[in-house]
Simulated scan of single mutants.
Amino acid sequence: MYSTLQMIHSYWAYLVLAMIVLASFNALMKYFSGKEFHAIDFRISLFTLIVSHIQLLIGLVLYFVSPNGVKNISANGMSGLDSFARLLAVEHPFVGILAVTFITIGYSKHKKKLTSKPKFKMLSIFYTLGLLLVLSRIPWSNWF
């Protein structure tokens, strides 16, 4: 179960990363160019929200069944973790939760705005923050 979840979490991350990049750049470009908010913009932001939440759920399940998650903290304590073990057991999950929280806040706030410019502003701020957080805590050595 662990290896299957880990594989799904790793490959789903490519889709999540691509969607966050697309949604962030879409919102930023249309915000600065003053374009109107259309159905495709709504779909991009919604799909990004959905795939990031699925990734979070897979990651939370993985956190509890993985030997690198809560089991590693229980066995070694926080002081017994090296930097890579701390990345997998603490930093990666915590920052992932924060990133999905920012994406969720941005999506929720943009729905309350009535005109295009404020909608794109909310999406660009919060989705870009989510993107930066995701990029900061990806275990790059495991990806390549």
Rank of each mutant, 00 (worst) to 15 (best):
M122D: 12
A13L: 11
I103R: 04
K121Q: 15
L88R: 05
S83M: 08
A39K: 14
I40Q: 10
F102S: 01
L17N: 03
R86T: 13
N68D: 11
G130T: 04
L56F: 05
N72Q: 14
I105M: 15
Y107R: 07
V51G: 08
F32W: 12
S3M: 03
Y11F: 15
E36T: 13
I138A: 00
L60W: 11
L98Y: 08
S45A: 15
L28R: 13
T48R: 09
M78K: 12
V134W: 03
K71F: 10
I40A: 10
V65C: 10
P67I: 00
V51C: 12
L131V: 01
K113C: 09
A99G: 10
K121M: 14
G96Q: 10
A75D: 12
N142D: 06
K112V: 08
K30D: 02
F102M: 09
G34A: 09
I125Q: 06
V65S: 11
G106N: 13
N72P: 04
S24R: 02
W143C: 02
I54P: 02
I73P: 07
A13K: 00
L98H: 00
L135F: 05
G96K: 08
L57F: 13
V95P: 01
H53K: 07
M78L: 15
A89T: 05
D41M: 08
F126A: 00
M78I: 15
V21I: 15
N26I: 02
N72A: 15
L123G: 02
K119G: 03
A99K: 05
I54K: 01
A39E: 14
V61D: 03
Y31R: 12
S3I: 05
S3G: 01
T101A: 13
L87W: 00
M29K: 10
F64Q: 02
S10M: 13
L60N: 11
L49A: 10
I8E: 02
S79W: 11
Y107T: 02
K71L: 02
R137H: 15
T48H: 03
M78T: 14
L17A: 04
M78S: 08
R43K: 14
K71C: 00
L81D: 06
I58K: 02
L98S: 09
L129V: 15
H38Y: 14
S52Y: 08
V65Y: 09
A23M: 03
D41F: 09
D82E: 09
G80M: 09
L87K: 01
L81F: 07
M19D: 00
K112I: 06
H92R: 07
V61M: 04
W143P: 01
F84N: 11
H38T: 14
R43W: 12
A13M: 09
V95N: 07
Q55L: 07
E36G: 14
P118V: 12
S74F: 09
L56C: 03
I103F: 06
A18Y: 06
T104D: 00
Y14I: 10
E36R: 13
V70W: 06
A85R: 04
F42D: 14
L114V: 15
F25T: 07
G34H: 09
H92W: 04
F84Q: 13
